[in-house]
Design a protein around this nucleic acid. Structure first.
Length: 245
RNA sequence: GCCUCUU
């Protein structure tokens, strides 16, 4: 078992988790190996990196059945590596459990939880995660970007704009990801006035457009048949040597 | 260490 840990860890650190998967398959075929918490960590990371949500979820249910106590690192690992592979109620339970047991999530766990709740439309829960994070200075610009994207997806434009103001108040520079999320939200909703306002804000604050910005603009203008604008963007992209998708 | 957000 120690040997498996060492080898799996080595492949992970070498950036070739695919090889680690092969080793884990050998281990499974051996049947009599009970991974310790250290190896379980590595296994979660391997399945996450190799996009194997079914294996990650299997491993999760296996350690739940084992009924051992988890430390803070294990909670972080589970949420980071298989949060999206589990039903929302299950991740929610893990997260609540973590807090109740007195462990503080790390920033990435915070951001994953905001994203999971946000994508599921559980916006109040997403916001509560951010509040907890702020209280312990665990939030970063990605926490805000993620929440903005969630409010945009679910058309809560007031809270979306409010979150943008919170970024300003928190002293973070406004990020291109937040702006792109807002553009996409307004664009999809056909709110072209607000869409233009965001673009104007970006110009005045010196937030440079990136390829994603142009892709969003192309989608929106295309849907509304704004031929001249499209032509203009395409020539700008050509100048920059960029390819829209 | 975990490496998370936008078409």
């Amino acid at each position: 078992m120690i040997t498996y840990s060492v080898v799996v860890k080595m492949y992970l650190n070498a950036g070739i988790p695919e090889s680690a998967v092969q080793v884990l398959e050998m281990m499974e075929n051996q049947n009599d190996i009970e991974p310790d918490s250290c190896l379980i960590h590595y296994m979660f990371r391997v399945y996450h990196k190799c996009n194997m949500p079914v294996k990650a979820a299997e491993l999760y249910y296996r350690i739940v059945r084992a009924g051992l106590k988890w430390d803070g690192a294990m909670y972080n690992c589970i949420i980071n590596c298989c949060g999206r592979a589990l039903p929302i109620d299950e991740v929610s339970k893990v997260y609540d459990d973590m807090i109740k047991s007195g462990f503080l999530p790390n920033t990435i766990t915070i951001n994953v939880m905001i994203d999971i709740y946000g994508k599921a439309g559980l916006l109040a829960k997403a916001y509560n995660v951010l509040r907890l994070a702020r209280k312990h200075t665990l939030s970063d610009i990605i926490s805000y970007n993620t929440l903005i994207s969630a409010y945009g997806k679910w058309k809560d434009y007031a809270r979306m704009e409010e979150t943008l103001h919170e970024i300003h108040r928190g002293g973070f520079p406004v990020s291109i990801e937040a702006c792109n999320s807002m553009l996409d939200a307004y664009g999809k909703a056909g709110q072209l006035k607000e869409f233009q306002d965001v673009l104007e804000q970006m110009r005045t604050t010196g937030c440079n457009f990136d390829l994603m910005t142009y892709n969003i603009m192309l989608n929106v203008y295309g849907k509304h048949g704004l031929v001249e604008e499209i032509t203009d963007i395409l020539s700008k992209l050509k100048e920059g040597g960029l390819q829209p998708d």
